[in-house]
Write a protein that binds this DNA or RNA. Sequence first.
DNA 1: TAGGCCATCTGGTCCT
DNA 2: AGGACCAGATGGCCTA
Length: 221
Amino acid sequence: METVYSDMDSSSCDYFMQDDEDSCSSMHASSPSSSIGKPASPASDSQGSCSTDLAQKKRRRGRARNEATVHVVKKNRRVKANDRERNRMHSLNDALETLRTVLPAFPDDSKLTKIETLRFAHNYIWALSETIRIADIEQRQNKSRADAPLLLPNLRVMDAPSPGSDACSWSSSASSSSSSSSSPSYCTSSSSSPAAQNDYGCFQTDVRQYSYHNFVPGMSY
DNA sequence: TAGGCCATCTGGTCCT
DNA sequence: AGGACCAGATGGCCTA
């Protein structure tokens, strides 16, 4: 563990503000905790300096410069790391934003939170794959009945996401009859959330009433 | 005003 | 050694 910032308190942002470029000099002048950069006391060299004293001073000064340089290098490294971390989080947010755009929009237009987006996407993918799987099964079953209409399973959105709600539960009406499928797991955490009772977004997408192409952009059957 | 969400900083750990 | 990733801490903003 690095102890370079041991003299910093937790709100250390202003630390970088106050001595950014000239931390060597400011460190020497103002850092009470560092004895490295302290100028030699007047008493020590007031009486004619011998060669050993000079050598000692040189060593001291050299050491101070080295440690100050190390300090600056580490500080710059920290600043760069912060910058990278910021960019990393921005790209993560961009990816989340892209994910939001491919998820079904809701009348409310309210932006999904990060956790809502992830859970909703998880359940959405699960519902779509269930739909495909069950449609495939039904298609095979209907092969013998050529004139029978192809019925896709009903797809329902339960507890549509709303601000403050973690519930983005999807359920396929046919999924209850299928024992092999596993249901989404992130559906129960927000039963206490008041927003979960808000059913503004609950709607049914029955392919017989609602075009599946409208519901799933870019998806074709 | 409390609680939720978010951005940012920070230090630790792992990987190349 | 340096970068990526992660989790904890902190403070700001917003809403019920």
